[in-house]
Write a protein that binds this DNA or RNA. Structure first.
Length: 543
RNA sequence: GGCCGGGUGGCAGAGUGGUUAUGCAGGGGCCUGCAAAGCCUCGUACGUCGGUUCAAUUCCGGUCCCGGCCUCCA
């Protein structure tokens, strides 16, 4: 595997600088991203993190080869919030006996975590995220977690107090390195939990006692209980990737204390100079300038951004409000380290169309046009296409994942491929060839961003009906099926032609309005024929 | 209080020591009976005050705002 142009630069939170990324082993680049705690659906801000680092995964695969990258994203299925959620659900079920088991009908904690883990993976798949190479779960790694805690005890970095096992922050000189904080400063103005059994206010829990709870408590050498929040990641990283990894990523709010504590645990247990060489942290989604969060209540579930219900039993019955790919592009429309403003939900409760919805559709139109009879031939032939080293989208991503720039480059490739805005310098002879190449690189560049996974025909079949802001108070169209058959449309168009020929424009426009009200778009052409299409059709039909 | 990050045209959002992305919205034009589609085109923005410089939105300093983290959080 040749490594093409391996000049990936990434902003490393650990050093505070943009650095050239150099993996320890180019044949096995190791990446760990903090995954979800599965007690609820992911909101769109959670999805941002996964989407951003999915782009990283794709770029690394491009540079180091698909087999050269190991990407682990955990599932946290042991957590106080999960227990709380389960008990709350249980109470509700008892209160509303007559109600049919709603979303999950989760009888056990196992079922609850499995349910939300599956929902998480499904939402991300819809957003075009590749499955991670590995998806370790906390509960399945309990022996590794316990062994790691024991190791920290043996090495004098942890102690037992009143049934708890605690990490001794004082035993680790570099504590605070990632967050760039000093322990004394934190304690000073601090809101750290000062428990009497802590040797130092900043010490944090590795293991805590718990009464037996099916699926959420475990035996250990110290007491029956469950692990603290941070130890699972340390244990799973070591278990599936190694003691020292190349990249560790997550949301900016995980930097402290979560990642700081991971570093302390892992480095003290393994006696390593770093846990990860490169640390990446993504910024938040904001709503009206405020961080989107569950506690503020200003969040949207990811699925709400493109479908009406979370139910997925019958895919065909699900009404798409928007293309999930367009939601993905919107998530990538700001640089990952910056905050990204998420528009307020409109009166009708649906996500406003983003400014990039049109680009996806336009690109697909080109693929479809290039795709022969089925419309999919081009897309099929280019299944294995990769970006050239100088693909402008690729170059933008190599510079610290500059996705906004990449999107503008995508737009330029689209213009080139379509032959419009003749700023393409390939004016020399091979204009057609240049367009063809641009189209291929448009597809390849888009795939680096995680777009264009669907075949054109499938994409257009799934197109939501036009819900352009018509000011109508009616519910959004539920699919654009309007009862008008092709024959009826042709007849109406014929009538309109006749009226136009007679210069009876009032009659002609009445017919046009009828068609428009049925979501049929029409287009008169220079040769006198009239074309029409429904919003989800890729091509104009002759009428 | 400590530590980060940011203030760019109507909105969103890149970037750069001098030629000033991109998208959305908007204006004008071609085309059209009218539209649609397409094409062409326009808007010279960088919080504020100083400094460095031939030249600063871009570098430095002050200042004013805004956001995040320090507690569960992507």
């Amino acid at each position: 595997m040749t490594i093409a142009n391996p000049t990936l630069k990434l902003f490393n939170s650990l050093t505070g600088r943009k650095e050239l990324f150099v993996p320890a082993d180019p044949k096995r680049v190791t990446v760990y991203v903090c995954g979800p705690t599965v007690y609820d659906y992911a909101h769109i801000g959670n999805a941002r993190s996964a989407v951003v680092f999915d782009v990283l995964f794709r770029l690394l695969r491009d540079v180091y080869g698909a087999d050269g990258v190991v990407y682990a994203r955990n599932i946290t299925d042991v957590d106080d919030k999960i227990i709380a959620r389960f008990q709350e659900q249980h109470r509700q079920d008892q209160q509303e006996q007559q109600e049919q088991q709603s979303q999950a009908g989760n009888q056990t904690i196992d079922q609850l975590t499995d349910f939300y883990a599956a929902a998480y993976n499904r939402d991300l798949a819809a957003l075009g995220c590749l499955p991670p190479t590995l998806q370790p779960r906390a509960r399945e790694n309990m022996p590794a977690i316990i062994a790691l805690i024991q190791r920290l005890l043996d090495r004098g970095h942890a102690y037992v107090a009143e049934g708890h096992v605690l990490f001794a922050v004082k035993s680790f000189a570099d504590y605070g390195q990632l967050a760039k904080r000093r322990v004394e400063e934190m304690v000073a103005g601090a809101r750290v939990e000062v428990a009497p059994y802590k040797q130092d206010p900043c010490d944090f829990v590795l293991w805590k006692p718990s009464p037996p709870i099916a699926g959420a408590s475990f035996d250990s050498p110290w007491c029956h209980g469950r692990p603290g929040w941070h130890i699972e990641c340390s244990a799973m990283i070591a278990a599936v990737l190694g003691d020292e990894i190349d990249i560790h990523a997550g949301g900016a709010d995980l930097k402290f204390p979560h990642h700081e504590n991971e570093i302390a645990q892992s480095r003290c247990a393994h006696d390593t100079p770093v846990l990860a060489h490169t640390w990446l942290h993504n910024g938040f989604l904001t709503v009206g300038g405020e961080k989107m969060s569950k506690s503020l209540g200003n969040f949207r579930y990811a699925w709400q951004c493109w479908r009406q219900t979370a139910a997925v039993d019958e895919e065909d019955a699900v009404v798409l409000l928007r293309q999930p790919q367009a939601v993905r592009l919107q998530l990538l429309s700001a640089h990952y380290r910056q905050p990204l403003n998420w528009p307020n939900v409109g009166d009708r409760g649906i996500e406003p169309a983003s400014q990039h919805d049109g680009l996806i559709e336009d690109c697909y139109s080109l693929f479809h046009q290039a795709g022969g009879a089925s419309g999919d031939d081009f897309w099929q032939q280019q299944q294995e296409v990769v970006a050239t080293p100088d693909n402008p989208v690729r170059l933008a991503l190599l510079d610290d994942l500059n996705t906004p720039l990449a999107i503008s480059r995508l737009t330029a490739l689209y213009q080139q491929a379509r032959g419009g805005k003749a700023n393409g310098k390939g004016a020399a002879g091979d204009a057609a060839d240049g367009k063809e190449q641009a189209l291929i690189q448009l597809l390849a560049g888009g795939r680096l961003l995680g777009l264009f996974a669907d075949a054109p025909s499938a994409f257009f079949r799934a197109m939501p009906a036009a819900t352009k802001d018509t000011g109508s108070t009616a519910a959004p169209a539920t699919g654009g099926d309007d009862g008008l058959q092709d024959g009826q449309i042709a007849a109406l168009l014929h009538q309109r032609q006749t009226a136009r020929a007679a210069r009876d424009f009032a009659a002609a426009d009445t017919i046009k309005q009828t068609l428009t009200s049925h979501n049929i778009l029409i287009q008169d052409t220079a040769d006198g024929t009239t074309l029409y299409k429904r919003p989800h059709d890729p091509d104009w039909r002759t009428g």
